[in-house]
Design a protein around this nucleic acid. Structure first.
Lengths: 341, 341
DNA sequence: TTGAAAGCGGTACCAG
DNA sequence: CTGGTACCGCTTTCAA
């Protein structure tokens, strides 16, 4: 816990020169800088966080609020938290965790005490109470997810609408006339912000393209496998020749298991596309087409915007949607009936 | 972002009186205090975090380091993080997250910069590199988990040894002579600190009681169900009349499914005890005896020790093990053969 | 029971 | 290119 004056003394320069040498906010003679860096290294100097916060205008801390609803999918959530932390560190920022009821109360608290420079909002609900909070404080907030009322907010997310539309187009272009969507568990359509966006876009686009289409929720936790397999079976029985899946890895496994049990071959008998999966789909027993939701992409952008919001050229409020990317793994082909025998 | 001098002015007192009124470190006339509290409320005053850190000797922040190995069970991990955050807040502390490579590098950094008052170490590996780090810094560190070399460290954990011993004793006392343990996935016995402790205690106690005993790992992620059911089947085929399970909820489900498929009734045909489960076992399809690992208990204690380590009466280094508690749900009875027909 | 003022350890302005 | 120094906002002696 050496202090800056010790470094200055050791390097034979003034305190301010040490400060400037470290921040780079003022040119320092190469030779002087060398001596300073040496001293810093010798003494294991690291600027006192409190002093830096007080004197400077930056705390170098971002808050991350996550209410953690009971139905939150832990692995997915962890990916986002991890991606955020990594992106933050790349920008010399640490992450302060606000969970549970502190997700809201803590937000007000850290804003009022100036503990953090910006707030990253995770696990966004359609009617998120943090929306109002974000508007009432001066600390910049970046939402990772899109609440219903996002007027004036900075929101980052995958363009779920475009992703679902793209998926529908791909199977429609391949010639399919009847498609199904296996979505998230029921509760996600009430408590979370993005599942409805996929579903809505799916239905709208399918209708536009004149396709027969149907939607099924998947199972959650306990009944996961059975419910999902039943949903898959019912879509297939209804005549769907292509399936879009917007769900967790468990659900993907269950869907593929049902397909395998029926002796169906992909893409010969059935086409399939994974939409907005945030896990590594290459670990599935079968390689399938995917329009991934990459946590790192969303979080990198969110952190960039957070950093930007501390500069004069603040990011413009509104939706910052990441364009979907389609990875072709040959799981989509023309439906069986339409091909020459 | 009102400041303390504004509050002082509004209340018609000096700055120091405001400070003391808020910290309670000096008696303040009830009437004066009332005026101050009113002013604080009016202005929405919250002490500046940076100033508090610099002037006071406390940052009111704990670091939480979590390397997040690839095999980390996300739901379990999340429980611990959440429990830690909640316990910290109860003590007026916020939690700074150090993940990934920052789990180690960040530890050194936050210690050197005085950003945190103490460090909570999660996800402890047998040969954890953070052990050496903890010894090299002056910031108090509390390990939640026990590394192989824990000389001089403060470690908190469930007494896994006692828990496994207790479980063995219960089934042995009930008359069982052949028991099995379904443990964690293989990798956990190499990368994590507690699975071996359960296994070792199980084997030692079973031997002491003269029981036939056998151990099986459970499946991880992908192959979870199949591997676990096979393990269960093999233990039953080998003649085990009682099963101890030390694993995640998925594994519990698989074990119970295998048992159900065999038409076995608990506890008539088979006794079963869940050891150190950190999830809510009452959500299982069947109520079974359990010696739970309660994240909140470990984390509460860890935070208490962290707080204590900032006072003159620092906690003594060593293992702070929580005694196991046995919850009887009638899933253990005398083995079938030993009862009158 | 209360006030005045000296730091805490940096940052960044003003000089030189 | 470098130094001196006035703050940043709060805690905590020291005095009254």
């Amino acid at each position: 816990m050496a202090k800056i004056n010790e470094v200055a003394e050791a390097a034979g320069v003034s305190i301010s020169t040490v400060s400037y040498a470290l921040s780079g906010k003022r040119p320092v003679a190469p030779e002087t800088r060398k001596r300073i860096e040496a001293a810093v290294h010798e003494l294991g100097y690291s600027p006192n966080a409190g002093a830096r916060m007080l004197a400077g205008s930056r705390t170098h801390i971002f808050a991350l609020t996550e209410p953690l609803r009971r139905d939150t999918h832990a692995p997915t959530h962890m990916s986002f938290v991890l991606a955020t932390a990594v992106a933050a560190r790349r920008n010399d920022y640490d992450v302060l965790l606000l969970t549970d009821e502190q997700a809201s109360a803590g937000m007000a608290r850290v804003a009022a005490s100036g503990l953090v420079d910006a707030i990253l909002v995770l696990d966004v609900a359609p009617d998120d109470e943090r929306v109002a909070l974000a508007r009432s404080i001066s600390t910049p907030s970046i939402f990772i997810g899109v609440p219903d009322d996002h007027e004036g907010l900075v929101c980052v997310d995958l363009d779920f609408h475009a992703a679902a539309t793209l998926a529908v187009d791909r199977v429609a272009d391949a010639g399919h006339r009847s498609i199904g969507l296996i979505g998230q568990p029921q509760v996600a359509y009430e408590k979370s912000n993005f599942p409805p966006r996929v579903r809505t876009a799916f239905e709208r686009r399918a209708a536009e393209r004149g396709l027969l289409h149907d939607f099924r929720v998947s199972g959650d936790r306990m009944a996961s496998v059975e419910v999902t397999r039943a949903a898959t079976a019912s879509l297939l029985d209804a005549g769907a020749t292509a399936l879009l899946v917007h769900a967790t890895d468990d659900v993907h496994h269950a869907v593929l298991a049902e397909i395998a049990d029926r002796g169906l071959s992909i893409p010969r008998d059935l086409s399939i596309v994974s939409v907005a999966a945030s896990f590594d789909t290459t670990t599935l027993p079968l390689q399938i087409d995917v329009i991934p939701l990459v946590p790192a992409s969303s979080c990198d952008l969110a952190v960039d915007l957070a950093v930007l919001s501390l500069t004069p050229e603040r990011p413009e409020p509104g939706l910052h949607l990441l364009p979907p990317v389609y990875y072709d793994n040959r799981s989509v082909a023309a439906p069986a009936g339409s091909r020459p025998a």
